[in-house]
Structure formats: structure tokens, C-alpha cells
Design a protein around this nucleic acid. Structure first.
Lengths: 349, 349
DNA sequence: GTCGGGATTGACAGCGCTGTCAAGACAGCG
DNA sequence: CGCTGTCTTGACAGCGCTGTCAATCCCGAC
């Protein structure tokens, strides 16, 4: 491998003891400063901070974990097939962790294997790692067995975008309904009256929510508006099939909302194959602002979830909690979507 | 938050001491078994393993780190804009880490900010975290300043797919040349004689390598073969522009190789806009087998790098090293690409 | 039967930090 | 001026494990 282990140039890292000595105070006082504990005089604070800075002191996480009851590690439960989605969420959570010198552990829980397996898997995860908290990402946020296990173990957790039984725990939410209404209105205001809807995967609560919001909003504009629905199962393939169905109907849709971007890309391809031009002949809006949104032409009008911020918030909640925060009350941070106007919607004269 | 901290049901985790007692041996003997040290009799081994199993003992990483000189943490240096690429590499590395109860720390190094900033950034990373090794992913594998810093600190590292100065360190390689030759032959054998090439980003060594291999291979078939080149900078947009250039030339290419999938998707879109059908009028091959490869129609013929395996191998090398392995010699694990035949290439009569 | 040497096992001192508890400092009050 | 209560500071044990070193065991060779 590539190195020389004999740290010729590397002087040993400063310890808390070193800082204490340099500042002329006790070990424990340095500890107090590091942990921002109360009852520290300004004078002592200054001395210690100067010494810390001077020695470039960085506390040793392993020692802190061993001696105290924090462990500087959070877990994230993952089971989302979309790398882009996962990546953004995790990036946000990771950033929050880094800021507090925490580490993030990733755990894939395979929903496909059924709730029994999942419960077993999480028990194992909890037993074998010392965590200060757990972040549940969709679709794991809605598996009751998981929540049960977590509660039994007494591990704090935060659910991201839970679909059901929302009040049960701390959570980070985002209002899909609201975003979908914007989509519906956007189409409506541009003169569209015949709609297509590509549904997602029924096992994800988000799927039903998005569908219902879209349909309801449109009906509120006109009770007997035309909406053709088809299943797209959140994939390109699914969107392709759904698109062909929607666009080759007798009175085809002029505006299609796909429950995610992959599906929307499928619809665009279907349009192309049917000789329809986007947005001239069909308008399309996606959901997620994933990577593909910019890998199609025209680039896709879509809705972006602030996933990084959501992940960040979730981790932040857990970290504050570990520092000795808010017991009893279930925090809830809410975020808004951002509508991203690009090139796939046309205004009908 | 969602829990009860008073672990009513949670009995304390077993410690090594507990195991020693249960097995009727000394603490140190259990430690030997856990660390697979030599000089342990079969009888003792059995007793200890039984006790470990019985008590569901899991060693405490923090304590091990504190007491020993391993820290059970590896770092990955990231600076690749493609989430899919990063994700796959990291997933593999992470899996290897999990198997050995290691943790992976991610660090973004912003190449765009220039080598000076990077060196500073890595110094800071190395100073503030206790790592057993570092994995460099492209394009960080080719920043000499980074390697210098790592070596100065004496931290073992492995470079993934380094482009230059390969022998300098341990590494995990994959032969782009070989894969690109396959691509060239694949086109050639199917009767194509007029080629288009979408180049990548010059700052990535891979870009030049892929380009050269493609051109050389084709020339080896026929010295004055027609190859039109255009810059695609590894993005969809770039591929789109490059595609329009290549396909609207006087004697347009019938087969286009794009240095990555995003670029290939751009070429396909360009073809569509020019009224050309893929693969009937133009054949396209990409590189990476990224998410978009299946989000276009027809789905993209491409080349897949075994990124998970590569990440896994890199982490594995570092972990073995930390266990006290191969000093002096620079390991090198080599991987092969896999050619993925899908629907974007046509055989010319 | 005895000795040398390697194989096997264990005792023990910390690693760097936090939690506990007690001591010292200091202000206010009678 | 002494006493009490609060604020600040420090001493100390020990978290769970590994590295060191010494003790013990077992074997073949003499």
C-alpha cells in the first residue's frame, strides 16, 4: 500500500490533557468547554479556547463514546431504489452529522422480504451498533414493525415524509398535496382540459397521495374534467407503457402528470414514438427533479423536494436530542416543494 | 422524539469481560479470538466462540479504537458529479466495511477550487479524523498534491482507476481501453464505417484514454476510416450539441460512441430532433450503464464498470492492511468491464 | 528422566474522555 | 463579621478493550 507508517513528520495529536495543561486548568474544565456545559466562567472559557486553538485540538470521538453515553453515530434506514433520491437525502443528513462530528451509518432494509424479515434485520442492526438515533427514509418510514422495534429498544428516531400515522413520532414532512395542486393549476391555467395521470407504485403511500391530490384539484376546477389514469410503477418502462396508453386513447390527454421523473421520461418517449412532439402536442410534468429531468429534451418541468434540507433537519433533530433536548414532545419540521419550470409544458391558445 | 430512554426491556450489552467469565478464560484470550490472533488452542477457541454466541457478544468499536491502533474507519475522497457513479462505488466500499465492522467516512474535495485548496482540505480532514486508510475515487485519484499529503501523514491509501503515475501506489484498476476496443469492434463487425465520437471532459484522464483507444482501434481496422469528433463534456447538454454536430455533417456518422451515458442520451435526442431514428439511422453506444441508460428508448447499449466490486476491493485492501498485512508492496486489483448489449445498435447490411 | 524452546495463556496498565461528587470561591443577608 | 446558598472548578474512577510482558504448559531432544 502507499505510505510510511513511521510518522516521521507526524507529531502526536494533542489530547484534552494537553489542552488542560496549556490552559492551566483541570481536565474536566476543558471537557466542559468542549461540551458547552453551563457554569463556565468567561475567563476560563477564553483560556481554554485559546489553548484548543493553539494546539489544534480535536476531541477523540472513540474516547468520548466510551466514557459517556453519546456515541456520535446516527443510522439511516434505506430502501429506496432511486440512487438520486437516496443520495440527496443522505447528503443532507451527512452534512448535519459532519458539523457535529457525528458519523452516519447506512442500513439497507429490504422491504421486499416482508415485515418479518425487516423486524429481524433491524433488531440485528440495533444490537450490533451503538447509535444515538435513527433516520427512517421512505418507504421505511411507514413500516409499523420497524417503529415498534425502535421504540422497544428506546432508540430515538425521526421519520422522513411519513405517509400514515404521522403523529406517532418525530418527523420531517413535505406536502406533496400542495405541490401536486400547483402542477394541476399550472396545467389548468395554460388551457389544458384533457389530462393524463401516470400513477406510481401502490406500495408507496406517496403514490396515492399524489394521485388523489391531482384528481381532486382538477375536479375542483371542473367536476367532469377528463382524466385518464394508468399505472407507471415509478419506472421509465412503466411510464412508457402508461404514456402509450394515455396518448393513444380516443381523446388523448394534452397534459400528462407523471408521479415521478422516470415515469415522465417514459411518457415523453412514448409521445415521440407516437409521433407527438413535446410540448407542442403533449405537455408533461414530472416529480422529483431527478437526474433524468435534465437528460431529456426539452428538459422536464417538474417539482423538486428539498431532500438535502430534509435529511439535514432529520439528523439535526436527533443530534440535538442526544445532546439532551426535548423529551416528550414530538418535533416536526415541515418543508415546501419547489416548482421547477422548464420546457415541457405548452400554453394552449 | 419517539422513544423511551429508560430501557425497560433493554438489558445491558455483554462485554468482553462477560464473555471471558462465561467461557472461564481470561479477558485477553477472548480478545485474541475476536482478533483472530495466532497461538490460540482449538479448545479455548471453541469455548470462547460458544460464549460469544451465547451472549450475542459484539465488540465495542469505540473501546477497540481507544485501546488499540486501529480505528475502524476508512475515508473516501469524492469529487464526481455523477450521483450514480459515486453511489455504486461507495456502496461496494461500504459493504466491505460493514463486513469488518468498519465505518466509512465521506469527504468531498472540491477539485474546482484548485490543488491548493484541496491540499489544505485534506490536511484538515486527516487532522480531524482518525482513519485507517483512504480511498481515492476519480477524479481525485489523479491529484498529486493529495497523494503527497497522504504520504506525508503516513496514511495508507488506494486509488481507484488512476489515470497517471499508476505505479505510485496501491490501486484498483479497470481497463477502459479494452472496453472501448470492444465498442469499436462491435460497431465495425456490424458494418459501420463512418463514426462519430463524443469526447468527455479533458480534466478527467479517462476522457483522453477512451478517445484514443477508440480512434486507434478503428484505425487498426482501416487506417483512413472516417471519425468525426466533438466535445461532450460528459453531460447530456454536451452530448446534445455534439450529436447535432456529428449527425448533421456532410457525411454523417452512422455509429456514435459517447464517452458516457449522459452524452449518449444527448446524442439520441439530437438524432430525434434531426428526424433520425435510433438505431435505424444512427447507432449509439454509451459508457457507464448509468441510470439514464434505461431511461431512454431504445435502452442504451453501453459498457458497465464493476464499480461495486471495485469499491469493495479498495476497502478490502485497506482493511487487510490495517490488520497488519502487506507492507512494502503495492497491491493492484484489476477488473474487467462488461459490455451491455441493448437496443441502440443496428447491423448495416 | 531432564532441559531448552516454542506454543499458549493470563495479569495489568492504560488509551482519552465523561459522570459523579466534593471542595473552593463568592455574593447576599442578618 | 459569620453564615448560607449558589456558582465554579477540580479530583478521581472507570468506560471496554488492546499491547506488553511474564508465567505456564507441552513437546522433542539429549
Amino acid at each position: 500500500m502507499s505510505d510510511r507508517e513511521n510518522g516521521q513528520t507526524t507529531q502526536p495529536r494533542a489530547t484534552m490533557q494537553d489542552v488542560a495543561r496549556a490552559a492551566g486548568v483541570s481536565l474536566k474544565s476543558v471537557s466542559r468547554v468542549i461540551n458547552a456545559e453551563p457554569h463556565v466562567s468567561q475567563k476560563l472559557l477564553d483560556k481554554v479556547q485559546a489553548a484548543i486553538h493553539e494546539l489544534r485540538y480535536v476531541p477523540d470521538t472513540a474516547a468520548r463514546s466510551l466514557a459517556g453515553q453519546r456515541h456520535f453515530m446516527l443510522g439511516v434506514l434505506l430502501d429506496n431504489p432511486s440512487p438520486h433520491y437516496t443520495m440527496r437525502l443522505v447528503a443532507g443528513a451527512y452534512e448535519a452529522c459532519r458539523q457535529h462530528r457525528y458519523t452516519l451509518q447506512f442500513d439497507n432494509i429490504y422491504a421486499a422480504e416482508g415485515p418479518g424479515h425487516q423486524a429481524e434485520r433491524i433488531e440485528q442492526i440495533l444490537h450490533s451498533s451503538r447509535l444515538d438515533g435513527m433516520i427512517l427514509t421512505p418507504p421505511t418510514s411507514d413500516v409499523p414493525e420497524l417503529l415498534d422495534s425502535l421504540e422497544r429498544k428506546g432508540l430515538p428516531y425521526v421519520r422522513i415524509a411519513p405517509g400514515q400515522d404521522t403523529e406517532r413520532s418525530a418527523r420531517v414532512t413535505v406536502d406533496d398535496r400542495d405541490a401536486v395542486r400547483q402542477v394541476a393549476d399550472y396545467f389548468w391555467e395554460r388551457g389544458h382540459r384533457r389530462f393524463g395521470l401516470v400513477r406510481g407504485l401502490w406500495s408507496h403511500p406517496s403514490s396515492r397521495i399524489r394521485r388523489d391530490a391531482f384528481v381532486e384539484r382538477l375536479r375542483s376546477h371542473s367536476p367532469d374534467v377528463s382524466i385518464i389514469e394508468a399505472d407507471g410503477d415509478y419506472t421509465f418502462e412503466g411510464g412508457l407503457r402508461a404514456g402509450e396508453e394515455l396518448l393513444s386513447a380516443r381523446r388523448p390527454a394534452t397534459a400528462v402528470f407523471a408521479s415521478n421523473d422516470d415515469g415522465a421520461a417514459g411518457v415523453m418517449t412514448a409521445a415521440m414514438r407516437l409521433g407527438l412532439k413535446v410540448p407542442h402536442d403533449v405537455s408533461v410534468i414530472g416529480f422529483d427533479d431527478s437526474w433524468v429531468a435534465k437528460s431529456v429534451w426539452p428538459s422536464l418541468t417538474t417539482v423538486r423536494q428539498p431532500l438535502e434540507e430534509m435529511g439535514h433537519a432529520a439528523a439535526q433533530m436527533l443530534i440535538s436530542r442526544a445532546l439532551g433536548g426535548h423529551h416528550g414532545t414530538f418535533a416536526n419540521r415541515h418543508f415546501e416543494h419547489r416548482f421547477i419550470e422548464r420546457g415541457t409544458v405548452r400554453t394552449i391558445a
